[in-house]
Structures are given as structure tokens and as C-alpha cells.
Design a protein around this nucleic acid. Sequence first.
RNA 1: GGCGACGUAGCUCAGUUGGUCAGAGCAUGCGGCUCAUAUCCGCAGAGUCCGGGGUUCAAGUCCCUGCGUCGCUACCA
Length: 519
Amino acid sequence: METPAQFFSTPIYYVNAKPHLGHAYTTIATDVATRFKQMDGYDTYFLTGTDEHGDKIVQAADKEQQSPREYVDKISRLFQDLWPRLNVANNQFIRTTQPDHIRVVEQLLTRIHDQGDIYFSSYEGLYCFGCERFYQERELVDGKCPDHGVAPSAIKESNYFFKMSRYQDWLIDHIKAHPGFIHPKQYETEILSFLKEPLEDLCISRPKSRLTWGITLPFDENFVTYVWFDALTNYISALGYPDGPLFKKFWPSARHFVAKDIIKPHGIYWPIMLKAAGIDIYNGLNVHGFWNVSGSKMSKSIGNVTDPVAVTDRYGVDAFRYFLMREMVFGLDANFTEDVLVSRINSDLANDLGNLFSRVLSMNLKYFKGRVPDPNGADFPDLSLETDAQTTIQQFKNAMTAYEFHKGVEAVWGLVSRMNKYIDTHEPWGLAKDPRQHPRLESVIGNLLEGLRTVACLIYPVMPETSTKMLRGLCMILPETGFFPLKEIGKWGQMSAGACLEKPDSLFPRVDVPKKPKN
RNA sequence: GGCGACGUAGCUCAGUUGGUCAGAGCAUGCGGCUCAUAUCCGCAGAGUCCGGGGUUCAAGUCCCUGCGUCGCUACCA
């Protein structure tokens, strides 16, 4: 049987500011999904990158007295350097200023232009010379430009337009015929409701008199292409469209992760562009919500733009990744607060998981000098955790397959909790006092070790470092991939009997919280 | 204005297709254990599931309506 392929992407991030919490979340979520699919037996490809053309880039570069090229190199570098620090294992980092990307954009534009879905037309609008842009009536304040306080002038400009309206009915049918194309469902509803209104055609160019930092239209050298034909095309240019082996293997298995602010370009423009170009439509869109910080929207003026580097430096990468996946219901908004992060670290990671790992291994050390009990020793069906583990694996798989990361994490913690109860119920310290009970004690410890192995395997997508640390502590020999395939995890008795386990370091030290004085 | 989301225990929030759905975690109180990172386990409390109406044998769960919070309203040519 052929290995199924799965392509995941993040948006390419616009390099007009440095990376923040939102970028980190999208990218980590995509990384988690990728790692999970690998465990589930897929060949995966994970793409991220930066979007580097356009007006705002030129302005930002001017402000820093740099050329656009210098400027985009600098900011793009910040993104490229961030991902390894967050344990994000992307296969490729694409930049829209790369020649091979530019070539594909040109090809795509040519193709769609040749078949007649791009036309030239003039537009008359309200233009502010200070801002160098057109305004919609509703954007004006008392009929004046909000930045300059000057009434804009009515001027005429000609541009190229993409005939999206032609494909509106097709898109509606496509969405309805492919459940899950836009996930979660509430965003599909949203897109379909947009599509109830007639689509207007998309302006895809800017005259070079106004903007030169872009890709020149292949059919008119006086214009550059604007935003979406440049940015969205990255998803296929990165794979080497039209003939590259990656493209042949991974297209159209793409699922694009995006935040809810860019569902329209991804849910409407992009499928229509593909359709017009005669390219297969991507598999689907995974849309997530926004992170608020301490209860308010992230913004520069409030000063709560959260820097992922600062958080991970302080609390660790795995704790950060865990928090993001556990705390946000995929698709809904969530709140990021340092208090809540610390509370999650202390209760879930230190008290539940870390302490469980520690108590089991120290009992094994105390009662059996660290030797792993023989799985073929005495069998006590009433002591088996195998069914619990298998149930957990199934729940985990179901949740992760549906991109419900918080549920996947919860399923694993359900097992952690059951193991803590199990210890209390069977009181190994009581069994240890009676030599006749030693076979039972061995079975209890053996089951707990197997349970820990299961947990260690399952947390791999979310917390790869901790997974490895735990598996090493359990003397499991890691496959070269760094993880155990999902379908192999449930098999009981995989620990090597007789291996000698040492007392490990704490997985997650508690974070001291100064008690708040009452009142 | 239009469209959409949300409004569930002190706090943060889960609740696919209507029928153990009145929940989890945290916080709080009491009790238990000692293997463990002063960790773990048990028990307890509170909520008219925003208000009102409707459909149904049965509704946080569907429909209508009111209130509150938030987001989008694109092609910024």
C-alpha cells in the first residue's frame, strides 16, 4: 500500500513586524498536526515562509532608511530563526522574493490571462496623494483622509482585474460538496454567507508609477501584481509547480492553517485562482481564532504584544507548546495570561505528569533496584492498564485527526489521571511489605511503566522534547524518526525487561508563585 | 445597517447529530495516603446553562425575539 501524503502550510507571514504570539501559535499548531500525521503513517511536507512585497514593506524600509531588500532580509531572518527555537520542524521556508517563486507567479498569471480571466479596466476613485492610496467612502472621516485630514481627489486609474465572479457558483458547489473543506464548520458558514452576495472581481495589479516593489506582470511591464496572486501562489511554487516531484507527490493534499482574519483570500480567492488555472483544489483550510492577551486584543498601543521568545526563555519550549495547544479550542479565540500559563505548568505538567513519572520511577528503583519487571511474569488481569491505554490512544487519534488539539491533550491527561488513581488504589508501598505480594507488585509497576511509555509516545507531537526525555528515561530505544508510529504504541509489554532505570531529573520543576497577599 | 461568533459553577472554559448534559480544570473547605516535584487520592459546595416565547414525549443543544460582548463588512483598486 502506498504511503499517503499530507501537505501542511502556515500562511507566509508579512514581514512588516517581528514575530508574535499569533505567528507562533499558527506555526506550532501546524507543526503539531504534521508530527501527528507522521505518527499516523503519512509522508508529510510542512511549509512556512515570509511574504515580502508590497507597499507597507517599502514604507517600513524607508522608515529604517534601508532598501526594501535589506529590510525584508532582516525581518525574514527573525522568522527563520524563531522556528527552530520553538521546535518547529518545517521542511521548507519560502520567501516571495525568491526567483523560483517569482517564476511560478508569472506562469500562473500568464496562464489565467491567456484563457481570458484577467481583463484591463479603469477605475475612478478617491485618491489621497499623501497616503498614496485610494479610499473607500466609508473609510473617510468627514469626507477627508483620516491620516492627512485632506479631502482626497477623484482620479482615474487603470488596472488588471481577475474575473472571480465567473466562478462563484462553482465555489459554492465545491464547498458544499466537500464537507470539511473549511474547518471548523462555523467558518464554512461564514464563507457561504459571503458568497450569497455577488462577488466582485479582484484587482490584481498596481501601476509601477505607484509601486515597484513587486512582481512585474508578464503581460504588461508597466504593472506589478498585487498581494494575492503573489502571496497565495507560494503554496504551489514551494512545491515546484508544475512539474516538480514535490508538487506531484503533495498536491492537492494541502491543508492550509490560517487565522480567521484571512479566511476570505484563502477560502474564496485561492480556490478560484486554482480553478481558473486548471489546478486541483487544495484539500482544505484549518481556521483558528485569535489570542487575546490578559483579556484584551493584542496591540502595539496597549503594549501587550507577546514575544514567544521571551516566554520560552522563561518557561521552556514544551511548556509553551503545551499551553497553546491545551488552552485554545481550535477555531475559537483564547486568552493568554502568564498566571494561567504558570497554573497549567504547575498543575498539569509538574503535579500531574512530572510527579507521576517521578513517583513511578522511584518506586521501581526502590522496590526493584530500577529493573524493569518481566512483562511475561505473573499476569493479573485486574491490574492491567492496557485497555485504558488503548482507549486513550483511540481518543487521542480521533481528536488529533479532527484537529481538535485540546481534546487530544485532554485524552492523554485522562490516562495520567487514571494512573495516579491506580497507584492509590493498589498501594504499591503496601504490597512491598509482604514478600508474597511481590508478583503483584511487579505487575503494578510494570503496568505503570507501560502506561508512562504510552503517555511519552502520545505527547510527541505537542512536546517532542519531553517525549524523548521520558522515553530515554524508560530506556526505550527511539526510532530514527524520533517517535513511535501510532499503531505500534498500544501493544503492551514493549519495555525491555531487565533494563535498569535510573531516577530521572524532574521533567517540569514547579514555578514558584509568590502567594498573593489577601486583600 | 448587513453577516457571523460568543453569553454555562468564584475564575477559565468543555459540551459532534436534541434524550444520565447540568460538566472539567483551577480556586476554596474537609478527610485520607506516604511511592512522589509539600506532590497524589477521596468527598463537599454553589450555576433558573443571558432574558422571553415556540417546536417536541424530550432543548445549553433546534426556531423566533430581546439584551450584552466581540469580530468581519473583502478587492483599501
